[in-house]
């Protein structure tokens, strides 16, 4: 396989994951804005979506007012915002086009149809009333992409590289959301009133990571608690967006790749090191050493892994 093909498969999946994550953040913000909360500042929810996706300063350079219209256009449709859903879908499709010969017809059609239908949407028509349906559509298309990939692609090197892109992005997204909101997850903030800002924040974090409902099953008393939420999203392997789950997947995939090529590369060792570091950790230690430092270091390691992978396999 060409190094460039491996790279395109990696980025095709990565951008698709990113598109879905940003759309979900917008959904959480929209939901928050629909509900009233005591003591919250104007626009808190929109700021949440912008900060978590890392484009809050770009937004304030371009817009004066923080409102549903501006945030929707910026996060969904803007060509100037590098992480907008539009740009991610376009980049995902360009990468897929570059490896047309390496992906199945079903997968290509899923990606191509999403893009064709997306660009036909006039942003002006996505009003407040239509936004939830539109976001649900984006979400479904992303699931269709992943379903088509899992159901049709050969389990060879191409599959492994696409999985890497998916999970490197997913774990990065989880870590960034936690890191921008880490102050809400400090154990001090456990004693709070119902309906307070923290409770809203917790709920938003869980929703942004599709964990609001599964949290209830993971923690039988179902009470929202900073400690549990942090543990759920960082260390619990059964949570498909937790750092531990993602790195188990990445380490397994790196192992399969090594077997496929019959050669062990430095990226495999790095993935194993990160994965075992997570599985041996206790939430108490993380708090003790500092949640913010832990997350910042993790984001750095994840980047380092992605770079090592592209070096090991000659990504162009």
């Amino acid at each position: 396989m060409l190094g460039r093909t491996a790279s395109s498969l990696f980025w095709m999946s990565r951008y698709h994951e990113r598109a879905q994550n940003v759309a979900r953040l917008l959904e959480v913000a929209y939901r928050g804005a629909m509900m009233s909360h005591r003591g919250q500042e104007h626009g808190t929810h929109w700021t949440f979506a912008l900060t978590c996706s890392g484009c809050d300063s770009d937004f304030s350079e371009k817009y004066d007012e923080l409102n549903i219209r501006n945030v929707t256009v910026f996060l969904m449709f803007s060509k100037e915002n590098p992480v907008s859903v539009r740009n991610s879908l376009e980049l995902a499709r360009n990468n897929a086009r570059a490896v047309r010969t390496g992906i199945t017809a079903e997968l290509w059609e899923a990606i191509n149809t999403t893009w064709i239908e997306f660009i036909e949407v006039n942003p002006q028509t996505i009003t407040q009333e239509r936004l939830p349906d539109f976001l649900a559509w984006v979400n479904q298309r992303a699931h269709l992409f992943r379903g088509a990939l899992l159901n049709t692609i050969l389990r060879d090197d191409g599959y492994f590289f696409s999985q890497m892109g998916n999970f490197v992005e997913r774990t990065d997204n989880t870590a960034r959301i936690l890191n921008t909101q880490y102050w809400a997850l400090l154990p001090d903030s456990d004693i709070v009133d119902d309906g307070s800002m923290e409770r809203y924040q917790w709920s938003a974090i869980l929703r942004a990571l599709s964990g609001r409902r599964s949290y209830r099953f993971a923690y039988p008393n179902a009470r929202l608690k900073a400690f549990n939420i942090a543990e759920f999203l960082i260390l619990r392997k059964e949570m498909p967006r937790s750092l531990a789950h993602c790195y188990n997947w990445i380490a397994d995939t790196a192992e399969e790749l090594a077997q496929f090529y019959s050669s062990r590369e430095p990226s495999l060792d790095l993935a194993k090191e990160i994965a075992s570091g997570l599985s041996e950790k206790q939430m108490r230690e993380i708090y003790h050493d500092g949640l913010h430092d832990f997350l910042t270091e993790f984001i750095g390691k994840n980047n380092q892994f992605a770079q090592q992978l592209s070096k090991d396999y000659n990504f162009a």
Binding site: M1, L2, G3, R4, Y261, S263, Y313, N314, A316
Partner: peptide, 13 residues
């Protein structure tokens, strides 16, 4: 790329 007068492609290996 060309090396010693021969053409090669860059693969993952």
């Amino acid at each position: 790329f060309v090396d010693a007068g021969k053409v090669f492609m860059r693969t993952t290996r």
